[in-house]
Write a protein that binds this DNA or RNA. Structure first.
Lengths: 195, 195
DNA sequence: GTAGCTTGTTGAGCGTTGCTCAGCAAGCCG
DNA sequence: CGGCTTGCTGAGCAACGCTCAACAAGCTAC
């Protein structure tokens, strides 16, 4: 095949920022089909239309690459969850819960892949997700007007795990109405933090 | 080094069962230090004093090996949690909770590594753990005398995630007494399943 | 325009890891 | 001793992460 020896794209040169963003974007698109850590450099480079070597020009090693992808995924969710400025504090947790359920409903596969990748194996990836969870706990405690002690933090973290699991299951097989789900999550959180 | 060319153990021949058990055992011992999926065949074979090839005589591929290791870990926990026969039903959940906390207290690192490996990436490993969780949910529902419908199952599964996270955190930084922890877990489960 | 610089980009190649396969040899039977 | 079963090995391949020297695209300066 002589055609393959003459590349269709005649060598396109991008700025460093563009290329980095493109590579991370490709990683994000591959997330639902592949556990982060199993992304192969070959595959990513192929989809980007570049050589393997170039990826190592932007990321020192594979781990640095997929933690960047994980961080991008975490940031996407975080931005979606954050309340629009000006929302009164007592409505903020309510709204975030609602948006979280919506997020899982829309991106179930991707989100599950993200959570799994974050929970599993690699400490570097786990840390990225833990940061997001810590930030969520902090927002929850402050907007609920609760003191930020170790006990409450543990309870809210555990409640997060509860919510994640329940919403994930519910999205796959709705066993109650959406408002019921939201009310249940809110109730459990309230009971846990105000005992 | 001519010494290395003359092996100290002059070629020991084991039965198939022995060898399999030994290899799984080595995997179990490596669990706390290494995510299951990152166990290298080389390392395991080296510790067993055999060639890489032999491992593939017993396990078709790497995945089959580390799912076997994961299943062994799950079985160990399951056997530890199961109530001794003859225990009255109303005490069974109580006892299992107590033993679960004890299990995490004793094997915190290994157990966390196991849960993480099970949650993370590989679907085959995840399935092994999900089986254990499903069995736990079933035991919980039957001994509590509750109907086994989809809703309750989801709630108990989510509660398991809650308990896992809370106990894990608590073992690292005890924010309450052990009886308080047990009571809290029992309360949350009761409130969830009887609403 | 062309010389020269910066820097995005590549290809060849190395070490490790998962996996295969042909065949050796330990221990048992006749 | 010969032959059989089967635990076991070593050489070797393909895929992967990663390195390195060098090419070349596109800008600026004269």
């Amino acid at each position: 095949m002589t055609a393959s020896s003459r590349p269709e794209h005649p060598r396109l040169r991008r700025t460093a920022g563009d290329r980095r963003a493109q590579l991370v974007q490709i990683g994000l698109e591959l997330l639902p089909t592949t556990p982060v850590q199993e992304l192969t450099i070959d595959e990513v480079a192929r989809q980007a239309g570049i050589s393997r070597s170039l990826l190592f020009h932007y990321f020192a090693n594979k781990r640095e690459y997929y933690t960047a992808v994980t961080r991008a995924a975490a940031d996407l969710m975080w931005e979606h969850l954050m309340p629009s400025p000006g929302t009164p504090p007592e409505e903020q947790v309510e709204g975030m819960l609602d948006r979280y359920v919506g997020w899982v409903e829309t991106f179930r596969e991707t989100h599950l892949a993200f959570v799994r990748g974050a929970a599993g194996g690699d400490p570097w990836v786990a840390e990225v997700y833990q940061e997001t969870r810590d930030r969520l706990v902090e927002v929850a405690l402050t907007t609920l007007g609760l003191p930020d002690d170790a006990l409450r933090r543990q309870l809210v973290l555990a409640w997060l795990a509860f919510a994640e699991e329940l919403v994930g299951q519910w999205a796959a097989e709705p066993t109650m109405t959406r408002p019921e789900l939201l009310a249940l999550l809110r109730d459990v959180l309230a009971r846990l933090t105000t005992r």
